[in-house]
Design a protein around this nucleic acid. Structure first.
Length: 457
RNA sequence: CGGGGCGUAGCUCAGCCUGGUAGAGUGCCUGCUUUGGGAGCAGGAUGCCGGAGGUUCGAAUCCUCUCGCCCCGACCA
């Protein structure tokens, strides 16, 4: 009997090669800056064809932007998984019922987008998920043996900002990773907080950013222990003050998330760092020349808030002593869509975006300088196929445009490497490889290109 | 939510004050020339002048209302 696939045991095939020829791709770049954009990341995101505005603070993600978003998301997931956190997906539309239970339905104010369904039930588009996740856990987690637990998801949120601005950096709709830790007691809860603290350092490092943890106000989320992670950029929304040494501080290579991470946290929090609302002016004189005053963009925020939600919502477990008590919770956010803008703020030049390799939409931009010239077409087309076959993400600019147009466009979209194939070089068996960040150019044999990119990653 | 500004071609903007048949640059299409950093020449297409109402012989232009977007402040991941 011929074997047939067993239902339920088949797996989807990996996504095959997608069109990455510029001539057939969807990448609407702009030569001029749309009038609505003020800050550099917003301008570049529009010009480089990453996003288009749908309404105030709400954006369409075009292919290039979506790829970056996806890359950031994957790194966040990997670093979360590494700590033992577990990914779930909660809904965007929530029932008001849970928010009434926690007492936040009234508190949250007009930032919350409230919706009424056809049965006149009060719903809302979730701005965050403490209530939703607490409800899941209280239904299912009954014993200390199920702890510790850390659930996270990456989901679109909505906060009806009075005044959205700065493109995706402060939109109303935004993609956010939010994680929630559940522990038996305060001490275990603090351990969970420390894990997240360290994993955030790792995550932002992998994203090519230097994020500095700073003591923060706890805001409407509530709680008593909280840090914001900020990257320094001229266009940052808040004023920050910190000790110079934080910019040089190293991040542990291999982190054992089962170990006690308190010393790492202590090392990072032992020196002064504060946003303006937490700033102590007396520290300025004390730090002297070691004080750095700058603008910062918040890219992550972690809270430990004890039993703020578990107590009113009765999320309780039985401990080893047989006593029932509320869970100790923390919550941990990373602004995934905001990071796209934040990375650009931190990494660009006059010509355009400079993507860190880890998040770049394509690693290599291949430029055919003379479309229509048989030798050049062959050489570039061959490189395109071989790079793809070697697993290198490559965008091939095969448009019949002038060289200058393609150079300018490639610089604008900021792929880390440009491989430039022209008729003169091809005749000599050479191509040029340009590093977008440093501007360094290197002539190399055509035959060596694939190995160069396939090996170094 | 307070204050200010702007909606005219895909994009950047002029025209509005002082009403009289819709403009420029760029982009797009065609042809020729050009071809390693956003080329040149010639030709071409493109607009409910955000929407509704009003004034007027006639409204992009004046008046009223309305919708949208942007900026400063307060707020915020």
């Amino acid at each position: 009997m011929p074997s047939r696939p067993i239902p339920g045991r088949t797996f989807p095939a990996p996504r095959g090669p997608r069109p990455m020829r510029r001539s057939r791709y969807f990448l609407p770049t702009l030569k001029e800056t749309p009038a609505e954009a003020q800050i550099v990341s917003h301008r570049l995101m529009l010009r480089a064809g990453l996003v288009r505005q749908h309404a105030a603070g709400i954006y369409n993600w075009l292919p290039m932007g979506y790829r970056v978003l996806d890359n950031i998301k994957r790194i966040v997931e990997q670093e979360q998984d590494r700590t033992g956190a577990i990914e779930i997906l909660m809904p965007t539309i929530q029932s008001a019922e849970f928010w009434k239970e926690s007492g936040r339905y009234e508190d949250y104010g007009r930032e919350m987008l409230r919706i009424t369904d056809r049965h006149e039930r009060e719903m809302l588009y979730g701005p965050t998920n403490e209530e939703a996740v607490t409800d899941i856990v209280r239904q299912t987690v009954k014993s200390y043996k199920d702890l510790p637990l850390n659930l996270y998801h990456i989901q679109w949120k909505f906060r009806d900002e009075v005044r959205p601005r700065f493109g995706v950096m402060r939109g109303r709709e935004f993609l956010m990773k939010d994680g929630y830790s559940f522990d038996l007691d305060e001490e275990a809860g603090r351990r969970a907080y420390h894990k997240m603290f360290v994993s955030y350092l790792k995550t932002f490092q992998r994203l090519g950013l230097k994020a500095i943890p700073m003591r923060a106000e706890t805001g409407p989320i509530g709680g008593n222990l909280s840090h914001e992670f900020l990257i320094l950029a001229e266009t940052g929304e808040s004023q920050v003050f910190c000790h110079r040494s934080l910019l040089e501080k190293s991040i542990p290579e291999d982190v054992d998330y089962d170990a006690d991470l308190e010393p790492v946290v202590a090392d990072w929090t032992g020196v002064y760092a504060a946003t303006d609302e937490m700033h102590d002016a007396a520290k300025e004189a004390e730090l002297g020349d070691d004080l750095i005053t700058a603008r910062g963009i918040e890219v992550g925020h972690i809270f430990f808030f004890n039993t703020k939600y578990s107590a009113p919502m009765k999320a309780e477990v039985v401990g080893p002593d047989g006593a029932t008590g509320p869970l100790y919770m923390g919550s941990y956010g990373i602004g995934v869509s905001r990071l796209v803008g934040a990375i650009i703020e931190a990494s660009h030049d006059e010509a355009g975006i400079i993507w860190p390799e880890s998040v770049a939409p394509f690693r290599v931009g291949l430029i055919n300088l003379k479309v229509g010239d048989a030798a050049t077409d062959n050489a570039a087309g061959d490189l395109y196929r071989r790079l793809q076959a070697a697993g290198v993400t490559v965008l091939y600019d095969d448009r019949d445009e002038r060289a200058g147009v393609k150079f300018a466009d490639m610089d604008l979209i900021g792929l880390p490497w440009q491989v430039i194939v022209g008729p003169k070089g091809v005749a000599a068996g050479q191509v040029e490889v340009k590093n977008r960040r440093t501007g360094e150019r290197e002539e190399m044999p055509l035959a060596g290109v694939v190995a160069r990119f396939a090996s170094s990653h």
